[in-house]
């Protein structure tokens, strides 16, 4: 187990270097960020040259990359164009997005798996077909539609919640955005667990468990569910990474100042230190989430062992 984890961690290094380099090149391919700093006016050459020099932009790209990586290993992610250190931006943004992701994942797991189990056990009945229909609708409606509609209904029409999230972004305020964010994934989780349960419910070990005279809830939770969750866990694991970085739409609709907000602003302003810094952290989150998923397999299914 320990050796397996170490091997996986070592494998992350080339992935990390490759992906950051790709991001670095792509952000720089967008054009010279300094030109956009001067509004509609032509940049003043002397000032622009000075800024380029200070941001290390007057060097060839491979040198810039080495310089940047050198900085990162000293814990310095550079400075955003508005003069704030990127680490400070991260300190503000990541906790907010983390809370949002947590809310979303909890909703996803609680509602998604419950619905999946219920419809899987009642395969072919009206409950099953209703759930299937609803998930189909949820999957086909884009997030920004559900986001704006729910925001308008709950925030403006009924006045139950504030339509936008304040700077604190407490868990209570994040319930609605979290639900919006969770909806699509929730539908996938429901469908995945439903299929998995429906298949396993006829497996030999379930029949044995029932024959042994185990109570029904114990059969379902200890035996059936545990074996059926592997595809679901895989999905949720990758989904955490997606939700952390891909909440741009939801964050914009509800004015949440999280990772999506910083990334969007960074891309719009060609603010390379912000974009590369945030994406680098997201890459790490993704890699770790994947590792966790793999380790979870062993917990769920004793037949899987890592050496």
């Amino acid at each position: 187990m320990g050796r397996y984890v170490i091997r996986r961690l070592l494998q992350m290094i080339p992935v990390f270097i490759g992906s950051t380099f790709l991001i670095f090149v792509m952000v720089y391919a967008l054009g010279d960020p300094v030109a956009a700093l001067f509004g509609e006016k032509a940049p003043d050459p002397a000032t622009a040259a000075q800024i380029r020099h200070d941001l290390y932009l007057d060097q060839p790209i491979w040198k810039q990359y080495l310089h940047y990586m050198g900085q990162i290993f000293q814990g310095d992610f550079g400075t955003a164009f508005n003069g704030q250190p990127v680490t400070e931006l991260m300190g503000e943004a990541f906790p907010v997005t983390l809370r949002l992701t947590l809310v979303a994942v909890v909703i996803e797991i609680a509602v998604g798996i419950t619905l999946g189990v219920v419809s899987g056990l009642r395969r072919g009945r009206s409950v099953d077909s209703t759930v299937l229909m609803i998930t189909l609708i949820v999957i086909s409606v884009p997030t920004f539609v559900t986001g704006y509609v729910l925001q308008y209904l709950f925030g403006v029409e009924w006045g139950i919640v504030r339509p936008s999230v304040s700077a604190d972004a407490t868990f209570g305020e994040l319930l609605l955005p979290g639900t919006v964010l969770a909806l699509v994934s929730l539908a996938y989780v429901t469908r995945l667990s439903r299929t998995s349960i429906a298949e396993n419910v006829r497996a030999d070990y379930v029949r044995t468990a029932v024959a042994k005279g185990l109570p029904r809830h114990r059969v379902i939770v200890r035996h059936l569910l545990r074996n059926s969750l592997i595809p679901v866990v895989t999905f949720i694991g990758t989904d955490i990474g997606v939700l952390m970085g891909g909440a741009i739409v939801t964050e914009r609709i509800f004015n949440i100042h999280g990772v999506g907000f910083q990334l969007y602003q960074g891309v719009l302003r060609n603010n390379s230190p912000t974009v590369v810094g945030f994406v680098t952290v997201l890459v790490i989150v993704f890699l770790l989430a994947n590792l966790l998923v793999d380790l979870c397999y062993a917990v769920l299914d004793p037949r899987i062992r890592y050496a």
Partner: peptide, 9 residues
């Protein structure tokens, strides 16, 4: 971030 959110507020 989005003037739509401000307008809704």
């Amino acid at each position: 971030t989005d003037n739509n959110a401000a307008y809704t507020d």
